[in-house]
Simulated assay, not measured.
Amino acid sequence: MLKKLIIVFLSIFICQFAHAAGVSLGATRVIYPINANQVTLKVYNSDNEGNYLIQSWITDSADKKNGDFIITPPLFVMKAGLNNMLRVVYTGNRENLAKDKESLFYFNSKVIPSTAELAKNQNALMISTTTKIKLFMRPNGLTIEDALEAHKKLKCSYQNNQIKIENPTPFYLNLVSLRVNNHDVSNAAMIPPMDSVLLKTSIKGPSLLFNVINDYGAQIKDNICTL
């Protein structure tokens, strides 16, 4: 039997299900209106016995840490069975952000078992996990009503052995379970605003069927884009 405590640190990035260990985030994405002073995100600890150390930070779309955001508290102990509120404040120059479309960042939260919890069991395999969810900076004038309807404006077409999906809207659109003639062509696709993606497939059909994840993290199922 092992005499010493073994600690293994793993980085696990979870986008659709925002949880790690006994700790979960109160949302699967963060919408930050560009003119807001701050946004908040709730953190829950469903473990009635374990305490965890929580560390949070923001990265850009290239996964580099972004110093234009402040998260309060950036590091704290999450007590068993309790919840806490994180404040996210953008301190950068808003003039540097796009005015006509969303900008993408990522909220990262690392969950580390506290040293007190580790000391209780000398023969344990403890895991540190990191949850990563999208954070969208949304310009003025872009309403949630427009965001919820944006997927209806997608344009789809065949290009050789590829399906081109065009997003003419100012919103990031997150599609999952993309199917043609009841055959999967992709598990997921995030289409940037005013941009397009190509999906390789030899499957032909009259339309692309997909689910879309909305602002609330819910899946709106069986949407149709004519090919």
Rank of each mutant, 00 (worst) to 15 (best):
S56R: 02
T115P: 00
K64Q: 08
L208P: 05
T130A: 01
F17E: 14
P113A: 03
Q38A: 12
D184W: 06
L82A: 11
L198D: 15
N45F: 06
Q55N: 07
D222H: 04
V8A: 03
A21G: 04
F171N: 06
E102S: 11
T72I: 15
T129D: 11
N51F: 07
S186Q: 15
M190E: 15
H183Y: 04
S157Q: 15
A124Y: 00
L97D: 14
M126R: 04
L2G: 01
D146Y: 13
D47K: 02
K153A: 12
V88T: 12
G50D: 14
V180N: 02
I7T: 08
A124F: 01
N84E: 10
L75D: 03
I133C: 03
A62M: 11
L5A: 10
N108T: 03
Y52M: 06
L86G: 07
V197A: 04
F171V: 08
K204T: 12
V111I: 15
N181P: 04
D100N: 10
F136C: 06
N93K: 10
L5M: 07
G22C: 08
N214A: 02
V212R: 07
K204F: 03
S11C: 03
Y90T: 05
E102L: 13
M1F: 02
W57I: 03
N37I: 12
K4N: 11
N84C: 00
N84I: 00
L142R: 08
M78E: 08
S46T: 12
R94M: 08
K120W: 00
L2H: 03
L227W: 00
L97S: 06
T131K: 04
A218M: 07
E149S: 13
L125V: 08
P33M: 01
L25G: 01
A98Y: 01
P33E: 05
K101I: 14
I191K: 06
L178K: 02
N161K: 11
L53E: 15
M126S: 12
S128W: 00
T59I: 14
I31T: 01
A147H: 10
C156N: 10
Q55R: 09
A150F: 02
D60R: 03
V111C: 05
N223T: 02
L82F: 02
I71M: 09
R138I: 08
L125T: 08
A20C: 10
I34S: 09
F76G: 04
K152S: 13
A98W: 00
K4Q: 08
T28M: 07
N84Q: 07
L227G: 07
K4E: 14
Y158S: 09
K4S: 13
D100F: 10
F17A: 14
V8Q: 03
T59R: 01
V8M: 07
L118T: 06
V180Q: 04
T72E: 15
V185L: 03
N123V: 12
T40H: 04
L86S: 05
G205K: 06
I12L: 03
V111E: 02
N51W: 07
